[in-house]
Design a protein around this nucleic acid. Structure first.
Length: 526
DNA sequence: TGACCAAGCGCC
DNA sequence: AAAGGGCGCTTGGTCA
C-alpha cells in the first residue's frame, strides 16, 4: 500500500523548485530514484503519513521539510497558538477559504482527506519560507525546522524498526514478579495474595485499587489520610501499608506493561510505539499508545540485542544545566560546564558541597523553594549572575502573562483565558507563580529538547549501515548494530554531541558529554 | 452505556 | 538523594 500523498522534492534552493505530482503506483520507485540521484529535501504535509509507506517498501530519505510541524512552530511564534496547523489548513488560510478542523486522529477517521496537490504543497512551503525569513532570527528558526523535521524522520524510522523486546523474557519476568498469566479479568496470583493481605490487615474486604475504599478503611483503623500516594503511606504505621505498597508497584506493572500490553505492542521481537514529535509543548516527544517513554526500569532486562548485534546506549549527562550555561553566556557557569561532572566543578562555589550545587541549579531551573533552596539560590545569584538572571527573566515573563521562547525559537503557549481570570482573583499569586515555574522551565527544557533533536539528526546521518536508531527518550538514545560496529557507533555518538552543540551554540566552552556504552542488555547500560 | 475527571505512578 | 517542570496510561467513580 502506497501513501496517497503528494511529495515535493526540493533541491538546495527550495524557492526555485516545482512540484512533481506522482501517481501512487510509481511513487515509491520515483522517490528512490530521486533520492539516489539528487538527495533532495522532501516536502510533505505530514511525515508519519508520507514516510511510513516508503519505509515499508525499504525506501529511506535523508532530509525532509514537514509542513504541519513547521506550521505549528510558525503559528506559535506568530502569536496564533492553537490554530489548525495541518498543511491543508495552512493552504486554506492562504486562500481565505474555510479552515478545516484538525483531524482528531488519523487512525480514527473513516475518510482520509484528498491529498494536497503538488501546487498547494509548493504554495504552503513558499509561504512558510517567507514567514521564516521575516523572523528576527531566521537562521535559528531554520535550524529548528530542520531539526524538527529530521526528528519526524527518526520517529517514523524507529517505529518501523522497533526496539528489540524479548517476549519470552518479558513473560518470565512477569511470572516471577506476579505469578503466571491469569485468565482475562483476574488478578495474577501474587497480586491477589497481596490484596488478600491488605484485606486481612483491615479485617474486611477492601479493593486496593479504590482510593475511596482505602481512605475509608484507614479511617476505620484510626488513620486519617489525605491521599493514598505511596510517599504518604510510607509514613504510616499500619500492617496494611507494606502489602499495599507492594501491591501498587506490581499492579502498575501488570496493568501498564503486562501481558496485554505486550499482546498489543510487541510483534516479531520488536516493540513499536508511535512517537509524537513535538507532542509536548516544550518540544519533547510524546507517544501515542505503548507508553514508550515510561517503560519501568525493571523491564530493561528484556531489551536484548539480536545475536551478533549490540545495543549502543548513551545519555547526555546533566544536559539542562549545560544548556542554561550556554544560553545565558554565563562565563563562570560555562567554565564549570566545561567539565565532565558539572556539579562537582560547582561544589567549590557552594561551600564545597556537590549536593548543594545540584540543589541550587535544579531550583533555579525549576523554581524550587523547599529546604535550603533560597539560601543556595542567593549564592547562585551572586556567583553566576547571568545564568540566574536568565531563568529569573523567564519566570517573570510567565508571571506577567507573556510568552517565552527556546533558544531556536519554539514558543510557549500563551496564558489561557482562565488563567487571566484566576490571576486577578484572590488566588492570583499562586496562579502567577505556577506559570512562572512553567516558563522558567520551558526555556531550559525546550532548548535541551532542541539539542537532543540536533543530536538525533546528526547521528542519523553518521550511522553506518545497517545500524539503526531504535529508541530515544528525551536525552537518551539507543542504537542497535552489529557487534563489530560498536566502536564506530560509539564514536559517532560523541561526534554527534559535539556537532549538535556547535549547531546550537557555536563555539561555546560548554561541553555536552555523551558517553555511550555497548551492551547486550539495556539493563547493563547504567 | 459512554464520556469525562481525578488519583496515582511510571519515565526524563 | 534531595526537585520540579513535562508527559501517558490505567483504574475507579460520577454523571448524563
Amino acid at each position: 500500500m502506497v501513501a496517497d500523498e503528494t511529495l515535493l522534492p526540493v533541491g538546495d534552493d527550495p524557492m526555485a523548485s516545482t512540484g512533481v505530482p506522482r501517481r501512487p503506483g510509481d511513487l515509491v520507485r520515483a522517490v528512490q530514484e530521486l533520492e539516489t540521484a539528487e538527495g533532495p529535501r522532501w516536502v510533505w504535509a505530514d511525515t508519519r503519513e508520507a514516510y511510513a509507506p516508503l519505509l515499508e517498501q525499504g525506501v529511506r530519505v535523508a532530509r525532509c521539510h514537514d509542513l504541519a510541524l513547521t506550521e505549528g512552530l510558525l503559528l506559535a511564534h506568530e502569536g496564533r497558538y492553537g490554530e489548525p496547523r495541518s498543511a491543508r489548513a495552512a493552504h486554506a488560510r492562504l486562500h481565505g477559504l474555510p479552515v478545516p478542523d484538525e483531524q482528531p486522529n488519523a487512525a480514527g477517521t473513516l475518510f482520509a482527506p484528498e491529498p494536497l496537490a503538488a501546487e498547494a504543497v509548493a504554495e504552503v512551503l513558499a509561504d512558510q519560507l517567507r514567514r521564516i525569513a521575516a523572523l528576527p532570527e531566521p537562521g535559528r528558526f531554520r535550524l529548528l525546522v530542520a531539526a524538527e523535521s529530521a526528528g519526524a524522520l527518526v520517529a517514523a524510522e524507529m517505529s518501523h524498526e522497533g526496539m528489540p523486546w524479548r517476549r519470552d523474557l518479558h513473560d518470565a519476568l512477569l511470572t516471577e514478579l506476579l505469578g503466571p498469566r491469569p485468565v482475562h479479568g483476574m488478578r495474577p496470583a501474587k497480586l491477589q495474595a497481596l490484596a488478600d493481605e491488605v484485606a486481612a490487615a483491615f479485617g474486611h474486604p477492601v479493593n486496593p485499587d479504590s482510593v475511596q475504599q482505602l481512605v475509608k478503611a484507614f479511617k476505620g483503623a484510626g488513620v486519617e489520610l489525605r491521599t493514598t500516594r505511596s510517599w504518604e503511606l510510607k509514613r504510616i504505621d499500619h500492617p496494611a501499608v507494606a502489602p499495599l505498597l507492594s501491591y501498587k508497584e506490581l499492579a502498575r506493572l501488570f496493568s501498564a506493561h503486562g501481558w496485554a500490553w505486550a499482546d498489543q505492542w510487541v510483534r516479531g521481537g520488536r516493540f513499536r510505539p508511535e512517537y509524537v514529535v513535538g507532542g509536548v509543548v516544550s518540544g519533547r516527544w510524546a507517544t501515542n499508545g505503548g507508553g514508550a517513554l515510561q517503560i519501568p526500569k525493571v523491564m530493561r532486562r528484556v531489551v536484548l540485542a539480536d545475536d551478533g548485534w549490540t545495543l549502543v546506549v548513551a545519555d547526555a549527562a546533566q544536559l539542562e544545566p549545560r544548556v542554561l550555561a550556554a544560553m545565558a553566556g554565563d562565563v563562570g557557569l560555562a567554565r564549570a560546564a566545561g567539565e565532565i561532572d558539572l556539579y562537582a566543578a560547582l561544589a567549590q562555589s557552594f561551600g564545597g558541597e556537590r549536593a548543594n550545587a545540584k540543589i541550587a541549579m535544579l531550583s533555579a531551573m525549576y523554581g524550587g523553594t523547599s529546604g535550603d533552596a533560597s539560601k543556595l539560590l542567593a549564592v547562585m545569584r551572586q556567583r553566576f549572575p547571568k545564568a540566574y538572571q536568565f531563568v529569573e527573566d523567564a519566570a517573570k515573563a510567565g508571571e506577567d502573562g507573556r510568552i517565552v521562547r527556546s533558544w531556536l525559537g519554539r514558543t510557549s503557549p500563551p496564558p489561557s483565558e482562565r488563567w487571566r481570570q484566576l490571576v486577578s482573583g484572590p488566588e492570583g499569586g499562586r496562579a502567577a507563580r505556577d506559570r512562572g515555574r512553567f516558563t522558567r522551565n520551558f526555556v531550559v527544557q525546550g532548548t535541551a529538547a532542541e539539542w537532543a533533536l540536533a543530536l538525533l539528526a546528526v547521528l542519523r546521518g553518521l550511522l553506518p549501515e545497517p545500524a539503526r536508531l531504535v529508541f530515544f527518550q528525551h536525552d537518551e538514545v539507543m542504537v542497535h548494530c552489529p557487534l563489530d560496529q560498536a566502536e564506530e557507533v560509539i564514536a559517532a555518538v560523541s561526534e554527534s554531541a559535539a556537532r549538535a552543540s556547535r549547531l546550537l551554540f557555536g563555539s561555546t566552552p560548554v561541553r555536552f558529554p555523551m558517553e555511550a556504552v555497548a551492551v547486550g542488555s539495556y539493563a547493563d547500560a547504567k
